[in-house]
Simulated assay, not measured.
Amino acid sequence: MKNLVYIFILLFQFSFGQSTDESSQKVFEIANEMYKKGDYENAIQKYEFIEKSLKQESADLYFNLGNSYYKLNKVAPSIYYYEKALLLEPTNKAIKTNLAFAQKRTIDNIKVIDELGFTKFIKSITSIFSINTWTWLSVIFSVLTLLSFALFLYKEESNIKRFSFVSIFVALFLVIVSFLSANFLTNFKTRDKPAIIFEDTVEVKAEPKEDSDNAFTLHEGTKVYVKETLDNYKRIHLTDKTEGWVLSSAIKEVRD
């Protein structure tokens, strides 16, 4: 009887997942038609319904949300959603291009201090794929390692033995690379917390309190990085290594 209950639950979850996907696809298509007709506000409502009510996300969904807000000249949300899309598809040229256009509408011109060469190289290599993709690759290469090992043990032909012997080390090397890449991106995701300024003007404080001196001013659409949270304030830093405190309500973190 227990087994039947488990089967029913699994079937229900599977059918529910399918129906949700179908619903989100239909709403997505309706929203796309609204966008094509220039009805950007209603298109946004449909896209956000998919995100918030149906709990679906994709680079295409966030990209279209960014485009819709861009058409309405809303800088902060357009950049916010382009950044979310880029997290899912880091190498997508269309997202990068539109994000660059949106960033040109911001007021602040923050200098970017380049990272050390090795760190920059590691980031560029690991960002080719997402964490999930690297994880799956490590699983696939692990299976290939086991298959190669089995061939080496049970096949007598010298050519196959040589091939399987080399394959073991190649596949094992790729397992290590995939695993380390996934681990690096996971750690980077934990440390790196990008956020977008959503208020027109924000006075960044030297300390996390209202009567603290203003350190500098930021404007809508500027990208910052959250270092820590204390009460109603968040400590942020910029790409030029400048730091300060802002009210939590003034920014919106890109990663949920």
Rank of each mutant, 00 (worst) to 15 (best):
T145W: 15
K252G: 02
F165I: 13
K46V: 11
P208M: 14
K111A: 15
G221Y: 00
F121Y: 05
L86D: 09
R255P: 01
F198C: 02
E41C: 03
I122H: 12
G221K: 00
L4Q: 05
L87P: 11
K120R: 10
I95P: 00
T91Q: 10
Q25H: 14
R162L: 10
N42V: 07
Y82L: 02
K37Q: 06
K55Y: 13
L54W: 02
V75G: 09
E22M: 04
S15T: 11
N67K: 04
Q103Y: 15
Y81G: 05
K71H: 06
A31M: 05
A250T: 05
R105L: 14
V246H: 03
E243F: 05
L153W: 11
R162D: 14
N232P: 02
S130Q: 10
D108F: 06
S53I: 14
L99A: 06
S23I: 00
S23C: 06
K26Y: 01
F163M: 02
E210A: 14
F49K: 00
K205H: 13
S248K: 07
I140K: 13
K55I: 12
L11K: 10
E57S: 13
S78M: 04
Q103M: 15
F198D: 01
N73V: 10
F141Q: 08
I113Q: 10
A215T: 15
K46S: 15
K71V: 10
E156A: 04
S249N: 03
N3W: 02
E89Q: 14
S158M: 07
K205M: 09
I168W: 12
I160E: 01
T126A: 11
K84Q: 07
R105D: 12
L174H: 14
T201W: 06
K93H: 12
I236C: 07
L185T: 07
E48K: 13
N183E: 14
P90L: 12
I113L: 13
L137R: 14
K36V: 02
G244S: 05
L61V: 02
E41L: 01
K205D: 04
G17T: 08
F184A: 07
K104H: 13
Y47A: 05
